Amino acid sequence: MMKKLVLIALLYLGTGIQANAQDNYVHTAKGNLVKILTANTGAKIKLNDVITFNVVQKTEKDSVLFSSYTMGHPLKIQVQACENAGDLMDVLPLLAEKDSALVKVPTDSIFKDHEDQRPPFLPKGCNLLFTVKIEKIQSLQEAMAERNAGLAKIKAEEIPARDKYIADNKLVVKTTPSGLKYFITQPSVKHKPLTGDTLLVNYTGKTIDGKVFDSSVQADAQKAGLNQPGRNYEPLQVIVGTSAVIKGWDEGLLLLNEGSKAEFIIPSNLGYGAEGAGADIPSYSTLVFDVELVKIKPIKHAPAKPVTKTPVKHKTTAAKKKS
């Protein structure tokens, strides 16, 4: 006859966390239920630590709502004070590096005071289920040092990668003093825009490894497999020279004639820099844009002031004649 397991109720002082002897879940101060699936020795997570973790979020009917494994990389966050049950911050102090846990989060806590935002598949009284695996724990200083070292490596690789793209594609480019590289693919003899003019621009943007991340041209978007629901495929309106777009665009568009097409090779300092722009544009990314200046809608510009040349006085070299 098997002996019955005796579950000991534990009290976690200072955290408001109590064990539930009935189902081996731990209750947190915010009402979450936590079951440790894999426990390891080592320091527990502390406030301000930076953690790298994988997580799967499900409904009680086992429908997956989110998975970092599907994304292809873990998440990284800094641990803050807990504000609501859904942020899991009251769960993290229970875990050490390589620990895993199942967390039940009451949806009534998540949608308290804003029931209008509750989706139909999360009815009152149900829980959201999170399976969390802690991959790495770092102090804020350690995480910043790692990030800075990684960014420095990426930054150092940008110029060689850009030069390789130009060489591999046998491009003959012009380079402006700022570092913008471009070449005209369809010339035009029409007029050029001035700062403040509204331009209609068709474009397709990609990284130098060929990944298309945006396009105003439907054929290009479909060819690249872009998912842009609700997108109206039409030229983008840009007020040029007013910082409404990235610096590389502001500079490059002023170099084009109406009706011309060009390729811009925009270094990161004229694009999105160290921050990047979401998953599609990493830090220190050189961007490539195929652009067409479809139309210029000029504003009324002040007439250019005539240039007057100042006469140059020449010194005489004639010696003063002696009397």
Score class of each variant (00 low, 15 high):
F264P: 00
C126A: 13
Y12T: 13
L140A: 14
K295D: 11
P160C: 12
Q78R: 14
L287F: 01
G276K: 00
Q186I: 02
I266F: 07
Q228A: 11
S216P: 04
A156M: 08
G230D: 03
A262G: 09
N169D: 06
S215F: 03
S178A: 14
K170D: 11
A101F: 04
A277Q: 15
K136W: 00
L128K: 12
K247S: 13
K4D: 09
P229Q: 08
P187A: 13
V26Y: 10
D250M: 03
I154R: 12
V6L: 14
L180P: 06
A101Q: 10
Q237S: 13
E251C: 08
T185S: 15
P193T: 07
K305Q: 14
W249C: 02
P235A: 07
G14E: 07
N20S: 06
Q222I: 00
N54M: 04
R231F: 04
Y69I: 11
K223F: 05
I8T: 14
N269K: 10
H314W: 00
G276C: 02
D23W: 01
S139K: 08
F264E: 03
P298G: 07
K124A: 10
K98M: 05
A318M: 07
H27G: 04
G125S: 09
L140Y: 11
K98G: 02
P229S: 08
T317W: 10
T131C: 08
L47D: 04
V132K: 07
A277W: 14
N148E: 14
K247N: 11
